[in-house]
Design a protein around this nucleic acid. Structure first.
Length: 103
DNA sequence: GGCCTGACTTTAG
DNA sequence: GCTAAAGCCAGGC
């Protein structure tokens, strides 16, 4: 039953589906999870991030491409990780025009 | 059952 | 163009 799959579970599933070199926004994951506007809730789940290997929360950025918190080192590390994956950066923000994940 | 918090988003000045 | 405030959703106590 889908009841076992809570909103939180769906967010983790979607985040784990983000391909390398691409990034998604909190609002986008919220919409994909089925609750548009729950961007804040998504951020909470990323903060709890149960497994960094299954949930690449570093590939999740703000709607503006700006990097927000990161409980696994810091924004600097998150930024470097994305660059290392091939994500195009503009100053301190991700270029969603090319790095935005499209299912 | 109700209140508070939060890695967000959007609109208005 | 930038700053400030309000709003929405889910989780925790």
């Amino acid at each position: 039953m889908e009841s076992t799959n809570t909103f939180r579970q769906r967010v983790y599933m979607l985040a784990s589906k983000i391909p390398r070199g691409k990034v998604a926004t909190y609002g986008q994951l919220a919409i994909m999870a089925g609750s548009p506007g729950a961007a804040r809730a998504v951020g909470l789940f990323m903060k709890e991030n149960p497994d960094l290997k299954t949930v690449p929360c570093h590939r999740v950025v703000a709607a503006d491409g700006k990097l927000t918190g990161y409980s696994n080192g810091g924004i600097s590390v998150k930024k470097q990780m994305l660059i290392d994956e091939g994500v195009d950066f503009k100053n301190d923000s991700v270029d969603l025009s090319t790095a935005r994940w499209r299912p």
